[in-house]
């Protein structure tokens, strides 16, 4: 069975995509994930200046998922430009991820960082735990989403994916604003919360940042609902993510309206091999249920 998909003109062998910020810090690590079967890979978000990120622990896990406050550690634009070259070596389309505090920052990043070696660029306007970025910088409103998306679209020929937060009550309005501003796709969702986990032996929050974004199985129903709402609101494709661990989870996300699915926290549970496993499980399900292609699945929860 053929799982190849067309996402905004990008041909991908299967609908699984590495989510930004899980591994993906180096070109080699993207290559390793592509080797493990991902249809496409997203790099860790890059900012103008180098960022050390928060002290440890930056990631902890609990009964139903993961919580992180990495703090956008990355080597900054100049080092990243040297790292992410000759991207055809990766073996799968590479989606860039850029961050900034203002629309001007995003315009700068788009202009200076993006090359036609990338297949697309994702702009997370939705991190819930890093001051100066995402929802903490007010990027989750329709107005800010529109301004930033326009700034990026103006400075690149690449398809622009706008990554949104599940914490926004009127998510459909944000997605529409992105579409009208020229976004090629919506990536939904970023982490939820923020949440907090306290170690009761010491009486202290585990994350050095005290609070962090929640991902993994705990947020899957929220992610499915967000994708469902966005599908109703816009015509552009959706990359659905949040708690995808199995082929069945991926199918559920596609039934809600996702054209492709992101996987991040799932790597913790099933290793980098998760991409091939999920793709195989999707095929198995389709065979069982007599689906011929993914088009028959995408959005059927709306019919």
């Amino acid at each position: 069975m053929n799982l190849s998909t067309n996402l905004c003109g990008i041909k991908i062998d299967n609908p699984t995509i590495l989510a930004s910020g899980i591994l993906g810090v180096t070109k080699s690590s993207l290559k390793n994930i592509a080797k493990n079967g991902a249809g496409a890979v997203t790099m860790k978000s890059i900012s103008k200046e180098p960022r050390k990120g928060h002290p440890n622990p930056i990631i902890t896990t609990f009964e139903a998922g993961m919580m992180n406050a990495v703090g956008y550690s990355n080597p900054g634009i100049e080092e990243a430009k040297k790292e992410f070259v000759d991207l055809k070596d990766v073996g799968a389309p590479v989606i860039a991820s850029i961050i900034g505090s203002t629309a001007d920052d995003f315009a700068y990043m788009a202009k200076r960082f993006l090359t036609d070696e990338f297949a697309a660029v994702e702009i997370p306007l939705s991190c819930p735990h890093t001051p100066g970025f995402g929802t903490l910088a007010g990027q989750g409103t329709p107005k800010a989403t529109s301004d930033i998306t326009k700034a990026v679209v103006k400075n690149t020929k690449l398809p622009v994916f706008v990554k949104v937060s599940p914490n926004i009550p009127k998510l459909a309005d944000v997605a529409k604003a992105a579409e009208e501003a020229g976004a090629a796709a919506i990536t939904a969702i970023n982490t939820a919360g923020p949440g907090m986990i306290i170690n009761i032996e010491t009486g202290k929050p585990i994350l050095a940042n005290k609070f962090g974004g929640v991902s993994g199985p705990a947020i899957k129903p929220i992610a499915v609902r967000c994708v469902y709402d966005i599908y109703k609101a816009v015509k552009i494709p959706i990359i659905g993510l949040g708690g995808i661990n199995t082929g069945r989870d991926a199918i559920e996300m596609m039934m809600a309206g996702a054209t492709a699915v992101g996987i991040g926290t799932g790597i913790y549970y099933r290793g980098p091999e998760i991409f091939k496993k999920v793709a195989d499980e999707i095929k198995e399900f389709m065979k069982e249920q007599d689906y011929k292609n993914l088009k028959e699945i995408i959005g059927i929860a709306h019919e």
Partner: peptide, 19 residues
């Protein structure tokens, strides 16, 4: 190393990309 369990990607090696 930051996480210790294969997620943050800070200890990935060139060229294999493994943690």
């Amino acid at each position: 190393m930051s996480c210790g369990f294969g997620i943050c990607g800070k200890c990935c090696l060139d060229d294999s990309g493994v943690c």
